[in-house]
């Protein structure tokens, strides 16, 4: 029964979801299922917080490898939790903690700058990844390199300056126009092909789940 009950739930909800798509009277069911999911998600926050505490306290007590980081994690978690729930530094209990108090101070002065820093690292990672990807090791990589070079140049004033001498009849060969063509024709065609594949994959995957063919998520290999 441990596997049959989840399977029955999956199959019934799957068929109801299909019904809600095709039958107008059942349309609100889709919204209801989203609501059920949101309700479950609220309880899951306790689950996540509890797991975080358990894993790091255990690491700390047993002095496992890199236990020092667990202190930072636990202190950060508890300080934000207490600052938020206790509304520390806020004028009154009805105050909006996203605007005043310790919680908002920590959020805007510690969390946001740290997040922005992580995001900013992307610029350097893009540079290193591009360097690796654009090495003309084989024919495909060479095509990639040329296409990327045209798009990069086409997005800058230099691209325009380099080829604006071309006569009207050959304007398609101007670098900015070439860049637009690459993005709107071969690139878009490739993306749409992938999207059609994804659409079919989603239908196929959903059918496998609804029909009970795919049961790996229940922890059993075969049907």
């Amino acid at each position: 029964m441990r596997r049959e009950i989840p399977l029955i739930i999956t199959i019934s909800v799957g068929f109801l979801a299909i019904l809600s798509f095709f039958s107008p009277p059942f349309e609100p069911l889709g919204e209801d299922f989203t609501l059920f999911f949101d309700i479950i998600a609220v309880f899951a926050f306790f689950l996540g917080g509890g797991n975080l505490m358990r894993v790091h306290i255990d690491k700390l007590i047993k002095r496992k490898k890199d236990w020092g980081f667990s202190i930072v994690t636990l202190v950060g978690f508890l300080v934000m939790l207490v600052a938020g729930l206790g509304k520390i530094g806020a004028e009154s209990i009805t105050s909006d903690i996203t605007r005043e108090g310790l919680f908002s101070t920590l959020y805007y002065n510690v969390h946001l700058p740290l997040g922005s820093t992580m995001y900013a690292l992307l610029a350097f990672f893009v540079a290193s990844a591009s360097y690796r990807a654009f090495r003309a090791k084989n024919r495909e990589a060479t095509v990639l390199l040329i296409a990327a070079f045209i798009i990069l140049l086409g997005s800058t004033p230099i691209g325009q300056m380099l080829t604006n001498w071309m006569p009207e009849g050959m304007s398609i060969l101007e670098i900015p126009n070439l860049a637009v063509w690459i993005m709107s024709s071969p690139n878009l065609a490739g993306q749409r092909a992938i999207m059609i594949g994804i659409g079919l994959g989603v239908v196929s995957m959903s059918l496998r789940l609804i029909l009970g063919i795919e049961r790996t998520y229940l922890g059993k290999d075969s049907g």
């Binding site: 999207m195 079919l200 994959g201 290999d221 075969s222």
Partner: peptide, 29 residues
């Protein structure tokens, strides 16, 4: 890439039933 993610489980298992659904996907495509 894309749909290959959904097909991965069937490929990994190499079970006939799962491969059957992949074959249907190819025909639909």
């Amino acid at each position: 890439i894309g749909e290959e993610l959904y097909a991965a489980s069937a490929y990994l298992g190499r079970e006939p039933i799962l491969l059957g659904s992949l074959k249907a996907q190819d025909w639909a495509k």
